[in-house]
């Protein structure tokens, strides 16, 4: 890598541990937050595994990213501090779309589902990360930033900062932030909605740092006290085994492809939203929300 920058997520590990300890004691004292031993272990172990798989595949990602930047860039933005600000903003925009596709395309969901697989919502959940993100097309969403002319090292540095920002929003300890902050930034309240499996909240609030992307693209849903968030998947996992957590959706896709009757169905099992089936025997988030809306109207 021509421009050597520190890896923010590795530097932040001691901070993560201190904040989890703080939340554990706060939750224990106040009774507002719950942890569960095995759930905590699985979440944090998934985080460690994610770091290791990320390190294993880093060389390939770096080489391809620099190949794009060196061969196709339109401008050369250099390395001044405004470039870091611009890169942070553009990377957050790319993150919004990676994340949105991570929920709406089953191939990318197979990796991202891991992060949503805990029924708890606390700081350890933030570390429950995928081991297989590199097997998805997520990296392509950052290519336009390289083509624009920003050094991939700066983009990856900003992506690390983005992940660090997202750590603190995985908590129930903070109710809401000041109104101006809630209107611009992603906050614990907005992100609780994102992790909730209540029909009202499904597939909303994909933002990383700036919640404005959800407001611009129509995916923002505010948290409401009348419908407290329940966390997890629409079909929760019945395991704490990290291997099963990491690969369950990949196994599901493989089984579905093997049993598909034609190539169109095979294609849609990979690219359609999670829950899609040819006969509608499972439910996508859109179907769940539509059924919920219908029940609301009937009340």
């Amino acid at each position: 890598m021509p421009f050597d920058l520190p890896k923010p997520t590795e530097w932040a590990v001691p901070l993560f541990i201190i904040l989890i300890l703080a939340e554990l004691f706060y939750g224990w004292k106040k009774g507002r937050i719950r942890y569960e031993g095995k759930d905590t272990f699985t979440s944090m172990f998934m985080g460690l595994g994610s770091t290791i798989t990320g390190a294993i595949t880093a060389t390939f990602i770096i080489i391809t990213s620099y190949w794009v930047w060196e061969n196709f860039r339109i401008f050369d933005f250099g390395y001044s501090w405004p470039v870091f600000v611009l890169a942070f903003f553009l990377d957050d925009f790319a993150y919004y779309w990676i994340h949105r596709f991570g929920h709406r395309m089953r191939w990318m969901w197979a990796a991202h589902v891991v992060h949503h697989s805990s029924q708890h919502y606390n700081l350890s959940t933030a570390l429950r990360q995928t081991w297989t993100g590199q097997l998805t097309p997520g990296i392509f969403f950052r290519w336009p930033i390289f083509i624009l002319g920003i050094d991939p090292a700066i983009v990856f540095f900003c992506a690390g900062l983005n992940l660090i920002y997202q750590f603190w929003i995985h908590t129930e300890a903070i109710d809401t932030c000041p109104k101006w902050f809630e209107s611009i930034m992603n906050t614990p309240s907005h992100h609780r909605v994102h992790h909730a499996n209540n029909p009202r909240y499904l597939d909303a609030n994909y933002a990383g740092v700036f919640i404005i992307w959800d407001k611009i693209f129509g995916t923002f849903i505010p948290e409401t006290k009348q419908d407290p968030c329940n966390y997890g998947l629409v079909t929760d996992l019945d395991t704490f085994n990290p291997l099963r957590v990491a690969f369950h959706e990949w196994v599901g896709i493989t089984r579905d492809i093997n049993s598909a009757k034609n190539w169109r169905h095979k294609f849609l099992y990979i690219f359609a939203p999670p829950g899609w089936t040819p006969d509608g025997s499972r439910m996508t988030s859109d179907m769940i929300r539509a059924a919920w809306l219908k029940r609301q109207e009937q009340k």
């Binding site: 590990v13 554990l24 224990w28 569960e36 905590t40 272990f41 944090m44 460690l48 350890s124």
Partner: peptide, 23 residues
Amino acid sequence: VQVTSSLGAIIFLAYLASKMFPN
């Protein structure tokens, strides 16, 4: 060193969580 120390911290925090929030 980072991997083993991280693993140690994970086990410690999970143990603490299980003691502070028993089922």
